[in-house]
């Protein structure tokens, strides 16, 4: 069942990648690309390909970071955006770039480091178990605060905010490096993740070093969420919604079994939202993050209503 499910999602993703490569304000034809038409190739390789890679990889990273965070916090309603980490790292990155303009070209890596530092800082400041609703409300208030600070700084200093439409190959490579780094850390911690099925008290009795595992995972989540923010801006709720979307199709699957479908759903959603944003009123491009929020917002509301009784 899982293989078929992942297979369907993978095929859908391949079709979406094809569509994203060919569709846009200038439609490309497959034959032109295959015949090596220099103009078509230039457009595809310089503009569309990095954007597609960023959408596919970024979407997967959002999904995976949401899934990981929900697993280790034992809470199905959170993600890095809801805790305010995405907005926070966006603001911090912006401040660093304003202070040291030379860092502009490393903005994705800087954002990854900011995300990591902020998420770990968050855990230190809010160490104890809080109720889900309290976490969400505090997080959203934090996010809103950082959002307005970001806006003020961005407009005040005339520094543009990141967006998919300005993605370069340099940024794409940075994102891929962060992805690989996170995956390497994930492989190390993977066999231990099963322990988060148990309560903290049971883990202490089993002498499982829960805090060490938790901080390890928070590094991965913060790094990924930060890097994605550095490239796409803040995408609200998506990380919280994606694991639940993949769970709908496999309701009895454990979080670790949902990693692949969650990543695939993330890639699919982000890529198609971007293609939609590029084509729907072409040649004008709509902001991809707004298109995504129009999808993820209502889904999160559904999640709250459906899960509210269970998790509040």
């Amino acid at each position: 069942m899982h293989k078929a499910y992942n297979g369907i999602l993978a095929v859908a993703l391949i079709i979406s990648v094809g569509a994203a490569l060919l569709l846009g304000s200038t439609h490309l034809s497959l034959t032109a690309l295959l015949q090596g038409d220099p103009d078509a190739l230039k457009l595809a390789i310089n503009y569309r390909l990095p954007r597609i890679i960023v959408a596919v990889v970024g979407g997967a990273m959002i999904g995976l970071s949401g899934n990981l965070l929900q697993l280790v916090l034992r809470n199905h309603l959170v993600d890095a955006s809801i805790l305010g980490i995405m907005n926070g790292s966006q603001f911090l990155t912006l401040c660093l770039i304003v202070l040291i303009p030379a860092l502009t070209h490393l903005n994705v890596v800087i954002a990854a480091i900011c995300g990591m530092v902020l998420l770990i800082g968050w855990r230190v400041v809010i160490p104890k178990q809080r109720s889900t609703m309290q976490l969400i409300l505090v997080g959203i208030a934090t996010a809103m605060t950082f959002q307005s600070l970001t806006q003020l700084t961005s407009e005040g200093f005339g520094v543009p905010l990141p967006s998919l439409s300005t993605v370069t190959w340099g940024q794409t490579w940075q994102l891929l490096i962060v992805l690989v780094l996170g995956l390497m850390l994930l492989i190390i911690v993977w066999p231990q993740l099963k322990y988060f099925a148990l309560s903290s008290e049971q883990l202490r009795l089993l002498k499982v070093p829960e805090n060490r595992l938790l901080y390890f995972v928070l590094c991965i989540v913060g790094m990924w969420a930060g890097a994605v923010t550095g490239l796409l801006g803040v995408i609200f709720f998506l990380g919280a919604v994606l694991p639940q979307m993949s769970r709908l199709m496999a309701p009895h699957a454990k979080s670790q079994a949902l990693f692949a479908p969650t990543a695939l759903w993330g890639s699919l959603l982000l890529l198609n939202a971007d293609t939609l944003a590029r084509t729907i009123v072409a040649p004008t491009e709509l902001p991809t993050s707004a298109v995504l929020l129009a999808i993820s917002g209502p889904l999160f509301v559904l999640l709250l209503i459906k899960g509210g009784r269970k998790h509040a």
Binding site: Y195, A197, L205
Partner: peptide, 24 residues
């Protein structure tokens, strides 16, 4: 080596009996 059983024990993932018993 202490083990603790409460009146209600929380499980945060949909484990099978085998998976829980062999977790360690």
């Amino acid at each position: 080596n202490i083990a603790l059983l409460a009146q209600q024990n929380e499980l945060f993932e949909p484990l099978t009996v085998r998976e829980l018993l062999t977790i360690q």
